[in-house]
Design a protein around this nucleic acid. Structure first.
Length: 241
DNA sequence: AACCAGGACGTGA
DNA sequence: TCACGTCATGGT
């Protein structure tokens, strides 16, 4: 099995196989992590439990996290979310009430605080304006500070929409697997993956997409790093890197 | 001590 | 379109 995306006939099968390899090796990832689950020693993840988010507040928290983690290590984001939980209980109205300089200080560990404070205020106002409705992808993308990956993350993990999230890790892994330089853009790669799962029932699709994206992140962190650790990589025999 | 992190945006070709 | 600089902190 090779994972060249130019192998049109086998493409869908390859992509489904890759998911199975990842899942069998790493197991369920339990995204999206939530602050509420961090009591009694939990790290916030909930592997195998797809009942989250269960409240509007948790959906809001996922949106905040999606913005905060832009080009930022999740560990740093957790510090900000912890700050925001302590200071505002992660309630949208309380964030808008807070002093902007305080907000910046709470965002600081996540970096880019001048940009992110604006993004978070805009997103918070938007979230309140939804009054519980599900936002469209277009509405999310229209927000300054929300690009494709952030929008899709919110839709998938916050609203259980059957959307696949592409990130730099996903692109890196596919480039390496397929011998690199296939110039993959977000939309093209996303459509390839949509096609591979087009016949899957919606509910199952949400589960698979939730796990698959998280598994790409997991594998990229474990082995397919910027400086790859090919020794011991489970995809060693499939990879053309 | 460079390098990188669960990107988005503005700009210039 | 696309490549590139900018934004910023903190861990490895």
């Amino acid at each position: 099995m090779n994972f060249s995306l130019s192998d049109v006939s086998e493409k869908g099968k390859s992509i489904r196989s890759l998911y199975n390899i990842f899942f069998e090796h790493y197991g369920p990832q339990g995204w999206w992590p939530l602050e509420i689950l961090k009591e009694k020693g939990s790290n916030g993840y909930h592997p195998g439990d797809f009942s989250f988010p269960e409240t509007s507040k948790q959906v809001f928290e996922i949106g905040l996290g999606a913005i905060l983690t832009q080009n930022t290590n999740w560990k740093q984001v957790e510090k900000t979310l912890s700050n925001l939980k302590e200071k505002t209980d992660l309630i949208p109205e309380n964030i808008l009430k807070a002093d902007v300089e305080d907000l910046k200080a709470w965002i600081k560990p996540s970096g880019f605080f001048n940009m992110k404070v604006k993004k978070i205020i805009l997103f918070t106002k938007f979230f309140i304006s939804l009054e519980g409705k599900v936002p469209s992808r277009e509405e999310l993308l229209a927000l300054w500070g929300v690009g494709e990956e952030t929008a899709d993350s919110i839709l998938l993990y916050g609203y259980k929409a059957p959307v696949f999230v592409i990130d730099n890790y996903t692109i890196r892994i596919f480039k390496r697997l397929s011998g690199k330089n296939e110039k993959l853009n977000y939309t093209d790669l996303q459509n390839i993956i949509f096609k591979a799962f087009k016949n899957m029932p919606l509910k199952e699709k949400v589960v698979v997409f939730s796990e698959y994206h998280a598994l790409f992140v997991k594998h990229a962190k474990e082995y397919c790093r910027n400086k790859p650790l090919c020794n011991g990589c489970i995809l060693r025999e499939h990879c053309l890197y």
